[in-house]
Design a protein around this nucleic acid. Sequence first.
DNA 1: GGATCGCTGATTTTT
DNA 2: TCAGCGATCC
Length: 754
Amino acid sequence: MLGHSPATPYTGTVNQTPAPLPDAPDYLQRLNPEQRMAIETTDGPLLVLAGAGTGKTRVLTTRFAHILLSGRARPYQILAVTFTNKAAREMRERIGTLLGEPVEGLWLGTFHALCARMLRRHAEYVGLSSGFTILDTDDQLRLLKQVIEPLRIDSKRWPPQGILGVIQRWKDRGLTPERVTPAEDCDFADGRCRAIYASYQARLVQLNACDFGDLMLHVTEILRTRPDVLAQYHRLFRYILVDEYQDTNTIQYLWLRLLAQREGQQSNICCVGDDDQSIYSWRGAEVENILRFERDFPGAAIVRLERNYRSTAQILGAASGLIAHNDGRLGKTLRPGRDDASGEKVRVASVWDSDDEARLVGEEVERLRAGGHRMSEIAILVRAGFQTRAFEERLIALGLPYRVVGGLRFYERAEIRDALAYMRVLNQPADDLAFERIVNVPRRGIGAVAMQKFHQAARDAGIPLTAAIGTMLERGEIKGKARDSLAALLNNLAQGREALPREGHVVVVDRLLEESGYIDMWKADTSIEAPGRLDNLKELVRALADFDSLGHFLEHVALVMENEESAGAERLSIMTLHGAKGLEFDTVFLPGWEEGVFPSQRTLDEGGLKGLEEERRLAYVGITRARHRAIISHAASRRIYGNWQSAMPSRFIEELPDEYVTTTGAASQTRSRGLGQAPVFSSAFPVTARRPRATDSADKGESRSGTALTVGTRVFHQKFGYGTVSSVEGNRLDVAFDKAGSKRLLDSFVEKAP
DNA sequence: GGATCGCTGATTTTT
DNA sequence: TCAGCGATCC
């Protein structure tokens, strides 16, 4: 495998560093030789291994501009793929800046957005029509439940989410129902997943809809089976650029390979990625894709970007030392791009518990703020969501402005989903899932029983729900309140649809939301959230005006679905390590580096090396987010699911090279001085609030310094109370506590019982 | 249709 | 511990 031969830095078609020509165009000035190589090696397959902070985005965008400006291709002949909308947007903007004007008609976007665009052109090949709806997670699940229901599957044992997960994983691997072999289908839902998958797909076609996975799956299937369509794209795309290649899953890989491998021509595909930052295997990403690049594209050139312009030498040293513990890497060492001998060492702080940890971080943030540090340049990066709470509480208490990144998104709010459902039915009357969502919102006296009847009628006649209800109304088969309210709703929708070309989508949607009573429903709501929801709805209608049609708007929402938050606000960010990928901050806090938290308990339980290495990459990503200052912390005891558990420092802490790290608190004692010391809280973190517990223990600890603990010794722990030492292993103890049971902990957190 | 009770299970998340 | 869910009751 490629990973075992990382010796040659550059292979294949390129072996000379282009000399920085004095007459090189402006946009190529002030790039380092590796970057120039990555940009100027335009033809033939190229893998750019771009370490954290090595100017990856700059290379990608400059390469794009270079291909255009050197006359190698027209803008629409370059396919540029990213994972997130944010990355796509950033690329588009920077290309515009480089070229001096915004460029139109680019094939630049996320895998899914590009596939949606392609699928609209060829939808008929997979039984859809070009106006198909893209379902969100909610709809997917609802649809799947409908499919499962008649099968009488025990939803306790086999939750629909689980089945949906199986289906999605198949889709990630490029498996249509026909391609799933019976052998693959036995582990879940008594071997009926394959059948469920098939009927789920059939229902989607009936609804003229597809889910997210289908965007990739359908297009790949078309490219696989329609040589004429494939040839068309081969002729179109002369160059392909891929960002974050290490995150591609199998279907994305297949899609790229189909587009790149052209009969009788070389593949001008350039993939940029970093195997050390692959942290999404649990989502189907295959690091193998990047490790295998040379085999897939023979004659591929490889360029390594290793000069890091982001972080201090100390931070890079710590991160590099850590990631060196992983096997099977493509091999890459970050070198400081600038001279930064004055940089601070990475700090590792030991604390008692999560409250202490939050207090420590809060104090340090206050200190930084007082020193003029920008709040938006500080981040607290956690492994998992539950860790954020302690920090939030502390920051609120201190009055420090923060935001938790990655909470509920705009599109996930109930009122936005409702309003979108109204628009979807307006746009496509056959959208049963959307109709179901709104039929009784606001209340129209339609219960489960009535819906059952409508469904039956629609199924029998083979028509959409709205059509079936329309027929039933005409025949007088619906009575009472339901009759009037449904007639009014269908009337609103029909009139809106008819008025659409005349009055425009903004006016029509606005009126539909008003006349259907949806807006009134929230006006009548007395809860505190209601005004906010009305604001959101106004915002949504306002956003409509940015699009030339309802269809385009819905497409955008389905694919982009993100919350455009007020940027630039002076707040520190709390987010997960995953969420921080691609970002950078002056100061980064990395709390919770404990066995069982980071690496996570689940990874430890699985016991595999792969999982652990991914956690280590996550740690690497965390450290490399910091420009100037990284502060790692670990607590000796943490409350997990309601009870206190003692925690060992993360193995990743031990893996940091000593010369780049300074430790404060208990870890420093255990790392360098060994047994018998109580936690000492470093003066590096000036204590403003009094911490009686910690201080007490430190004092007592010092008074008995030098006393070795042996098996049978009676000890006292601040949280667990009294206990007896049952084994000693270096500085690690097993203690049988009288009340709290048996725990494993660092000797420095207990003291000899009086 | 809405409130209440008890059970369960609890990383990481984009599109 | 505690939120989120489904079942149950009014």
